[in-house]
Nucleic acid binder design. Structure first.
Lengths: 209, 209
DNA sequence: GGTGTATCCCCCAATTTGGGGGATTTTTAA
DNA sequence: TTAAAAATCCCCCAAATTGGGGGATACACC
């Protein structure tokens, strides 16, 4: 069964390069190539790709927004991001949008087939450094000014718990919870849970589980 | 510079197998082997490993708890989890504890050197299916009963915002926010934000960014 | 002896929450 | 085309929550 591939990339040389390599492989079939997401989206019903190679920097709609659109229409379609720089912000945004992996733009053209093979085999192809970034996003930064107990309390606030509920769950008084929160606010120089949560989650000071 | 390796694995055959393979490689040096985390932890200061191979199922302290302890003492130490079954629960727990990658237990012994090489080179070695699990954890499940707007509102609640703040941020009335929340509660069959958040986050119905 | 952590107590006013009861318009799907 | 779902807005109201003060005690660590 041939896998249908769509390429969305505004630089013609790269677009045609990928296309040429993939066309020479029997199991893959490049159904269409576009320079913008907008063009690709209107033809999505006809193209019905199994795999999309998506540039992240595009004129008009970004590759991230495009990925979200494609996944909405074709949830089983695998979108692989074509990227040069490994900007952590964009990496996580595209993962949230539904990206299934990353292709490094300046890698030799032949390795692209392996990358797609890996995605089709049920993997999530990424460069070493992106894999490390993704794994690290689960881990606490060790530079938190908060004590263990304070982190625990803030964690509970993130879960939407009230002071009373937190107190009950931690087997302490509500007043103790309040003390911890006062200290958290002082340390983070904020005066509301929204701001405390914003700072703590931006710095990876809370557990994700 | 030789990398110092500690192996923590209760099955002697596997422990010694890994040890034998790694001892034959110049760049790696197995400084010690243990059957339990407890033993390894008391010798951590002497062993000072750069890399720890950690079994996840151990008598006494689990490999997950052990990983957390080791990372607390040696933040730059790379802990690689040795695993047979790829239990998603345990995978994410060990990632949060500080694991840097996964080694499949029944893989051929030679590939372990490659796995460690990858970790040392700045990567995060994982099996195809674990990589997919990790990437998918960033993505919304498409089976959510909530509408886009409702998801947006619930997302804001998760950030600790009040109804008024949500209303202001979404440029709608507070009453509209209340309507959405009433609908969320009805759909999820709950009657508080804590319960709504619990269900929605357990099912990956909210964005992580 | 000071600094940080963890625990607990009081007062109080403004805000928030969630329980009702509605309504209208637009969009989507059958 | 018709019905259901989604998105928007309005009212009333009581209980709970939040965050601002002001403290205190005990333990540990340096």
């Amino acid at each position: 069964m041939e896998k249908r591939i769509t390429i969305i990339e505004d630089i013609a040389a790269i677009r045609e390069g990928f296309s040429a390599v993939l066309s020479s492989v029997n199991k893959y079939q490049v159904v269409n190539r576009y320079a913008t997401c907008e063009e690709a989206l209107v033809n999505l019903d006809n193209d019905r790709p199994d795999i999309v190679l998506m540039d992240i920097e595009l004129p008009g709609m970004s590759g991230i927004a495009g990925t979200a659109q494609i996944k909405r229409a074709l949830p089983d379609c695998i979108v692989l991001i074509i990227t040069v720089l490994e900007d952590s912000e964009k990496v996580f945004q595209s993962l949230c949008a539904g990206a299934g992996g990353y292709i490094v733009k300046n890698s030799n053209l032949e390795s692209i087939v392996q990358t797609i093979d890996e995605a089709v085999a049920g993997g999530a192809p990424m460069s070493l450094s992106i894999a490390r970034m993704v794994v690290q996003s689960f881990q606490l930064q060790p530079d938190s000014p908060l004590s263990e107990r304070e982190t625990e309390v803030l964690q509970s606030i993130a879960e939407g718990k009230s002071y009373s509920k937190i107190a009950a769950d931690l087997y302490i008084s509500r007043e103790t919870v309040r003390s911890h929160i006062k200290n958290i606010y002082r340390k983070l120089e904020v005066s509301s849970k929204v701001d405390a949560l914003k700072i703590a989650s931006a710095n990876n000071w809370m557990n994700k589980l």
